[in-house]
Design a protein around this nucleic acid. Structure first.
Lengths: 329, 329
DNA sequence: CTGAAAGCGCTAACAA
DNA sequence: TTGTTAGCGCTTTCAG
């Protein structure tokens, strides 16, 4: 039963008693077919369970209408971004082709897979490739870097105003009365430099002395930083991202340091992690909806050769106050 | 510069001074071309930066050599499975097409996308669709359910021996001297029923009285269960999965209950979460490598119409002892 | 070992 | 409004 050939456009045409072109038009919802014909075609297609073959369709039309997305399968924030991209892709006429970076599959490999699928543009989530190789890639097709700045005029960038985001966190804590505010940074991770810079600037603005501890983007790096913090704890800390903050939280609670009573903490990303009731992390939210919509719009604009003015789209973040911040004791 | 047409097989043939068929053979590493010809073709292809168009190739050959994978983008364990699948797919001659289930994109939609791509088989990670709709699907193409049992003869299943896995956890705890061992379950999640059954059986075997608390597969469900536990804590607990266990851990440490000194805990999955230094969770490891390799092998076997004896492949789990279990105080 | 020719399923010109 | 025709880039017979 499984080996019956799939119905083709020709089958539908025969059954409906019309030509292939008519069927083609109807299936694509293009004008140029009479109401009665349209009905007959759809009926025939329905009876046969016809589904157009995208490969043939795209081969003929010379385009794939496919947007490649490279993401890190272990990154919770990338999960949020992919979710947003799928939503944004609805009704655009473009499909997403996902390609994951895993422990065993690097970015180059993930990109290579998409190239073979003839994607028309690439959206890379927090890409790690060098600016040079991204530049080379952008010579072949439009490339949008999402959530990581890239210093090359050929590559579009959509990202949060990370410096500003860090500033929001510091402002919030300073507003609560904190003066000893540390920052656990993200090392060389995408966005980390910006967030560090924003932290420093905001501390200066408030006339406070900053203190930056090396962190990273994973829980264990956060835990390590937290242990370093225990010797001489500040009253508040801003952390590179939520995942790292989770590690910090864990070490603090194991060492009997109450959050927020003894120590306030602000994360970054507003990932699903932060929203969990038992974590309930005050955090800087990247506007995922706007970011993903912008990335998609930009990719499509490039594909369609529309004129573009600003290469970088910078989306303002906002603070989400939850349960991990309070005035100092 | 971006608008140069991509080189085609014909371009390569012209440049190498041979016919299209030869180029085709050489590109596919098929026998039937002389060494010198082969060299010339590869040289020409290299110079032009030629990459075969998979659409055209597959259109012509009538097959897509594509295996569809449906996964939940918010599930850490699915991330591990996808990682394994990519690795297993190496050298098989098949490619993976990823389709994610998100908050805004359900399983049916994810599957529909893959159908249009003409995947030859589907691998569904912990699918939520009804047995009936999976059965219908399996009438069209081979379907492998990974990490969830499906009661239908048309659907292949690859999963852990979950009952046995729960047993391992209980045996370990009982071996340490625990007698008050509770289980926080996974409700209706894939595998939960099996794990519950295994827990009960093992408790019986040890002559112990069981206690099952409703949990779930997320951190917050774990946290809720943990709060229920606080009133009358056992000395040990086995938890449906690592993610849920993380939530439990968090509530315990916030309430000053030391793990493992006052309470031992065993998770399930050995997800990357469990391996984090600050969590360091004793857990039941599903053999991801074997599971993903089996799922892939099975899917390919079905595609190639090989005879198959056992519809279900059940992979034994094993215990990974880390830092959250110790003898009772 | 090599080449010529047919055609996968579809879309886009064009003609009717 | 409808049908006809010619390929998209590739693989696959089948001759040479």
């Amino acid at each position: 039963m499984r080996d019956e050939r799939r119905p083709t456009l020709t089958d539908v045409a025969e059954r409906a008693g019309v030509s292939k072109s008519l069927v083609s038009l109807v299936m694509r919802d293009e004008p140029g077919a009479g109401a009665e014909t349209r009905r007959r075609v759809l009926e025939a297609a329905g009876q046969l369970g016809y589904q157009p073959d995208s490969r043939a369709r795209l081969l003929r039309s010379g385009r794939s209408r496919l947007l490649g997305v490279v993401f890190g399968i272990q990154h919770p924030f990338h999960a949020d971004l992919v979710t947003g991209l799928y939503t944004a892709a609805r009704e655009t006429g473009y499909e997403l082709a996902l390609s994951a970076v895993t422990a065993d599959r690097d970015e180059a490999e993930a990109i290579a897979g998409l190239l073979q699928d003839r994607c028309e543009a690439l959206i890379l989530l927090g890409p790690h490739s060098s600016a040079a190789s991204l530049a080379r890639l952008s010579g072949r097709m439009p490339v949008v870097s999402l959530a990581r700045p890239v210093r090359h005029t050929g590559v579009d960038v959509v990202r949060s105003a990370d410096a500003e985001g860090s500033g929001l966190a510091v402002d919030h804590l300073a507003g609560l009365g904190h003066t000893a505010i540390a920052h656990i940074d993200g090392g060389r991770a995408p966005g980390a430099a910006e967030r560090r810079r924003g932290y420093r600037a905001a501390m200066d603005r408030h006339g406070l002395t900053g203190r930056i501890l090396p962190g990273g983007l994973t829980e264990s790096e956060g835990a390590a930083a937290a242990r370093a913090l225990l010797a001489d704890p500040p009253t508040a800390v801003t952390v590179f991202n939520d995942r790292c903050a989770t590690g910090v939280l864990d070490v603090l609670s194991r060492n009997g340091i109450a959050v927020p009573d003894e120590l306030s903490m602000v994360g970054y990303d507003d990932s699903s992690l932060a929203r969990l009731a038992h974590i309930n992390l005050t955090t800087v939210a990247q506007d995922v909806t706007t970011m993903t919509r912008s990335a998609l719009t930009r990719a499509i604009a490039r594909v369609q050769n529309e004129p573009i003015t600003r290469r970088e789209i910078i989306v303002p973040p906002h603070l989400v106050v939850r349960g991990t911040t309070a005035p100092p004791a």
